[in-house]
């Protein structure tokens, strides 16, 4: 990675332009460590909550009448928690929060593209599912989960664990 243009030699000599400084200002040791500790704990707590929700979804699925809406809400909650986690990692661990606004914007703004990217792809996937279900009845019958149309035929088994 080293190039013959080595920036490092000259950074110290940048005193003529005091605003050009490549050093972070959070050198206050105690405050920094406290911030890192806080973030670590926060990330851990969020992860634990996520796991709890994951297990809750599992329990709901095992139950007699899975509540689709509740599962969906749980899943939405997990997504939001994940975004919160991502925010803390980027902002604190990657120090983006300490950069100046210009920098933050050049990173955050392009990420907005993901919104339409995700919506369009997922909507399209969903639309193909609908097409198949409508015009390929065999596909629908052979892949639709049992509780939608097989229920009358057999009781839903309780244990879903895989066998080794």
């Amino acid at each position: 990675m080293s190039t013959h243009f080595d920036p490092t030699k000259h950074i110290s000599s940048s005193a003529a332009y005091p605003e050009v400084s490549f050093h972070h200002h959070d050198t206050d040791d105690a405050a920094f460590k406290k911030k890192v500790r806080k973030t670590t704990i926060l990330l851990s707590v969020i992860t634990i909550i996520e796991l709890a929700i994951g297990l809750a979804i599992y329990t709901i699925h095992k139950g007699e009448n899975p509540n689709a809406l509740l599962v969906l809400m749980f899943k939405g909650a997990v997504c939001i928690l994940t975004l919160a986690k991502a925010y803390y990692i980027v902002s604190v661990f990657m120090h983006l929060g300490d950069e100046i606004r210009n920098m933050i914007m050049t990173i955050v703004v392009p990420l907005m593209l993901f919104i339409w990217f995700i919506i369009a792809f997922v909507a399209d996937g969903n639309s193909y599912k609908n097409l198949r279900n409508k015009y390929d009845k065999h596909f629908q019958e052979s892949t639709m989960p049992a509780d939608h149309h097989k229920k009358a035929e057999e009781p839903k088994p309780a244990d879903a664990g895989g066998k080794q």
């Binding site: 065999h138 019958e141 052979s142 149309h149 097989k150 035929e153 057999e154």
Partner: peptide, 8 residues
């Protein structure tokens, strides 16, 4: 045949 059966 029961509708449950997979066609294949």
């Amino acid at each position: 045949a029961p509708a449950v059966l997979k066609d294949s």
